[in-house]
Amino acid sequence: GAPPLPPYSAGGREVTMKKGDILTLLNSTNKDWWKVEVNDRQGFVPAAYVKKLDSGTGKELVLALYDYQEK
C-alpha cells in the first residue's frame, strides 16, 4: 500500500494524480510535499508518492507510484 501521508505543510493547493502518471516537477525544496504540474494544473503531491525520472530533456519529471486524491 501507499506510505503514510506526511502532515500537510506545503501551503498551496494539492493536485490529484493516478498511479503511472508522468508529472513535471516544479519544486522539490519541501522534503514532504513536491510541487508538480499535471494537465496544466499546478499543485502539491506527497514526495513519497512519486519517483524522479531521468528525462534527458532538462525538464524534471516524476512518476506517480500511487493514486493521490487532493483533499
Score class of each variant (00 low, 15 high):
G1K: 11
G1R: 06
G1N: 13
G1Q: 12
G1F: 07
A2D: 07
A2N: 09
A2Q: 10
A2L: 13
A2H: 10
P3Y: 05
P4C: 07
P4H: 07
L5N: 06
L5M: 10
L5P: 10
L5R: 10
P6I: 02
P6C: 04
Y8I: 11
Y8P: 07
Y8H: 09
S9V: 09
S9T: 09
S9M: 14
A10W: 07
G11D: 14
G12F: 11
R13F: 10
R13G: 12
R13A: 15
E14G: 13
E14C: 11
E14Q: 15
V15S: 03
V15Q: 05
T16Q: 08
T16G: 13
T16S: 15
T16F: 10
T16K: 06
M17K: 00
M17W: 03
M17S: 00
M17N: 00
M17F: 10
M17C: 05
K18L: 07
K18D: 03
K18W: 09
K18G: 04
K19I: 05
K19E: 05
G20H: 04
G20S: 02
G20I: 00
D21I: 04
D21G: 03
D21K: 03
I22P: 01
I22G: 00
L23M: 15
L23A: 08
T24Q: 08
T24K: 11
T24M: 10
T24L: 15
L25G: 00
L26R: 04
L26Q: 03
L26V: 11
L26D: 01
L26G: 01
N27C: 09
N27M: 07
N27P: 02
S28H: 08
S28N: 07
T29R: 11
N30K: 05
N30Q: 10
N30H: 09
N30F: 05
N30W: 05
N30M: 08
K31H: 12
K31N: 11
K31G: 10
K31W: 07
D32S: 07
D32T: 06
D32M: 11
W34R: 01
W34N: 01
W34E: 01
W34C: 02
V36L: 03
V36A: 02
E37Q: 13
E37M: 10
E37K: 09
V38C: 08
V38S: 13
V38Y: 12
N39Q: 11
N39L: 10
D40I: 04
R41Y: 09
R41A: 12
R41C: 08
R41N: 12
R41V: 15
Q42K: 10
Q42E: 13
Q42H: 09
G43Q: 02
F44H: 04
F44Q: 02
F44W: 14
V45Y: 00
V45T: 02
V45E: 00
P46T: 01
P46W: 03
P46C: 03
A47I: 02
A47H: 02
A47Q: 04
A48K: 10
A48N: 13
A48G: 07
Y49M: 05
Y49L: 05
Y49T: 03
V50W: 00
K51M: 14
K51F: 07
K51S: 09
K51G: 06
K51I: 12
K52P: 09
K52G: 04
L53P: 00
L53R: 02
D54H: 12
D54K: 10
D54T: 12
D54C: 10
D54A: 11
S55N: 14
S55R: 08
S55C: 11
S55I: 12
G56P: 15
G56W: 10
G56F: 11
T57N: 15
G58S: 11
G58N: 11
G58H: 11
G58C: 07
K59D: 10
K59R: 13
K59L: 12
K59T: 12
E60A: 14
L61C: 06
L61Q: 12
L61F: 12
L61Y: 12
V62R: 00
V62W: 05
V62C: 09
V62G: 13
A64C: 08
A64I: 02
A64N: 00
L65W: 03
L65N: 03
Y66H: 07
Y66D: 03
D67T: 06
D67M: 03
D67Y: 04
Y68D: 00
Q69R: 10
Q69W: 11
E70I: 09
E70L: 10
E70K: 13
K71T: 15
